[in-house]
Design a binder for these strands. Structure first.
Length: 476
RNA sequence: GGCGCGUUCGUCUAGCGGCCAAGGACACGGCCCUCUCAAGGCCGAGAUCACGGGUUCGAAUCCCGUACGCGCUACCA
């Protein structure tokens, strides 16, 4: 089918998967989903020196975790060298490219000299080898593309409308390196043609090299895809997003406790919005409403506060069982340091109602619920004694709570609440005083989920045991 | 330096010639609720739409210029 929508995500395996890359992947994926198109994954590993082991695997893991599944690939450019060489041979044969024997030293000097002389005509390379039709192939060399020396390259960017560049301002860029690997420019064009890519959505930083690509398409006789250059993701100082200002690796974000839909929802809103009020989207709603033609043009600063808010919102709206599943998986990969035991699925399900609307990210749970997974809790007598109370009255309060709890027939949070509130009245102290004492006694924490639910969760035996420990503590 | 892109509350954004002396959200402040922490509810502060010229009866919205910012300018992608 000729008009099939085919997009690709083409990361280079040079580090951890970056938030910006993921956003590009998301926009491509959404576009493919809503157009019944194909989403292709291609690993651009043409730079052997910058390549990092496992980088591609991390990318794959991240995409799967987010649910951004692909229809074809991953293709690896390093396994497709023949295709590039064929294209390059064709270009040389047609005088659209030429071998260049200039040494890196010569190029370096050339640039230094010209920047000193402020020569405005000089662009990157002086085309020495383009003039000499010296075709000795034995000597080390690169291959350069012969850029048109006149005219303009004009294209209609889906995000930015018409963009135009003077051809003479693009240098005769290298398409084949001396290690026999193609550069990005060439491999990218050959592959996009080979894989019948219909739309190229990539970050704005690629905009200036687009005329190079278009001229390459023309020289090779390939049809030109539609382009859309996405606004960049920025750090708080408005420069290209970098890890100096926060986590940019999606792997780090996963380990902090963001959930897939939280990240997807947040990323979708960086450069796109539905209207003047809707902030929360499920993936299906994004597929339905997202519009690549309606993007913001300026860069967007990544606001981690807002990410957390969106993430928390989704955590709150998840059904408890699927939240439990996500927490369980999260804890498997990131066991909380303050736990003495590994939570089972059953235990995880039990604690969900207590923390669901108190957290923004999964890593916050362990602070709230640590007492439940600890063999013993730790606190001082001072922490036990509340404002307006002393050692004696605190002890009395604990004793009274003990007998009140012991006499409850139906041990659930509602009965527990009634019983303890009555105890406070009988003792003539404020509910807050009683409950705060119990909170410390039962959790060792000043901050916790609802006390009544905690008592139900702990059960009568563990509760009495911990109260006894407090009483003993104050007696010695 | 050259080239390109961009510019609405601190941040993400709505706005596509009159509905805007600019709306929403995050963050922030206050109040309510309340067993702590959250969540939730209500209220508030916050942008003369970078600046200057046009065009028009009318401009945040169209055009031009200036400034500023960012990106690119590698045998990196």
């Amino acid at each position: 089918m000729q008009n099939e929508i085919r997009v690709r995500f083409a990361p280079s395996p040079t580090g951890d998967p970056h938030l910006g890359s993921i956003r590009t992947a998301l926009f491509n994926w959404l576009f493919a989903q809503q157009n019944n198109g194909k989403f292709i994954l291609r690993i651009e590993d043409t730079d052997q020196s910058r390549k990092q082991h496992n980088s591609d695997q991390k990318m794959i893991t991240a995409l799967k975790w987010l649910g951004l599944d692909w229809d074809e690939g991953p293709y690896y450019q390093s396994k497709r060298l023949e295709k590039y060489h064929t294209a390059i041979d064709t270009l040389i044969k047609n005088n659209k490219a030429y071998r260049c024997y200039c040494s890196p030293e010569r190029l370096d000097n050339l640039r230094k000299q010209n920047s000193k002389n402020h020569d405005k005509k000089f662009i990157g390379y002086d085309k020495l080898c383009r003039k000499n039709s010296n075709l000795e192939t034995s000597k080390p060399h690169v291959v350069r593309f012969a850029m048109p020396e006149t005219g303009k390259t004009i294209f209609n960017d889906i995000v930015r409308n018409e963009v135009s560049f003077q051809n003479e301002l693009s240098e005769d860029f290298i398409i084949l390196k001396s290690d026999n690997f193609p550069t990005y420019h060439l491999a990218n064009v050959v592959d996009d043609n080979d894989m019948k890519i219909s739309h190229v959505f990539r970050a704005e930083e690629w905009l200036p090299s687009t005329p190079k690509h278009i001229n390459l398409y023309n020289a090779l006789g390939y049809p030109i895809p539609k382009y859309g250059h996405l606004p960049m993701l920025l750090s708080s100082d408005r420069t290209k997003l970098s890890k100096r200002h926060g986590a940019t690796s999606i792997i780090d974000l996963i380990n902090i406790g963001y959930i897939p839909i939280g990240l997807i929802n947040f990323l979708a809103l960086l450069g796109w919005s539905l209207d003047d009020k809707t902030e929360i989207f499920q993936t299906e709603e994004l597929i339905k409403n997202f519009d690549i033609h309606d993007l913001t043009k300026s860069g967007a600063v990544v606001d981690y506060e807002k990410l957390s808010w969106i993430n928390g919102y989704h955590i709150r709206s998840l059904d408890p069982d699927s939240l439990a599943k996500q927490i369980y998986e999260f804890w498997e990969l990131n066991p909380p340091k303050n736990f003495d035991t590994s939570p089972t699925m059953e235990e995880t399900k039990k604690i969900v109602p207590l923390i669901q609307n108190r957290i923004k990210i999964l890593s916050e749970i362990s602070e709230y619920i640590g007492f439940y997974f600890k063999k013993s809790i730790d606190y001082t007598i001072e922490e036990l004694i509340q404002k307006g109370m002393d050692l004696q009255s605190t002890k009395i309060a604990l004793e009274a709570s003990k007998s009140a709890l012991n006499s409850i027939t139906k041990f659930d949070s509602v009965s527990i609440e009634t019983s303890l509130r009555n105890t406070a009245i009988e003792l003539q102290i404020k509910p807050g005083q009683l409950l705060s004492t119990l909170r410390v006694s039962l959790t060792g924490q000043k901050i916790s989920p609802s006390l009544f639910e905690i008592i139900e969760l702990n059960g009568i035996d563990k509760t009495i045991e911990r109260i006894n420990i407090s009483i003993e503590k104050m007696t010695t």
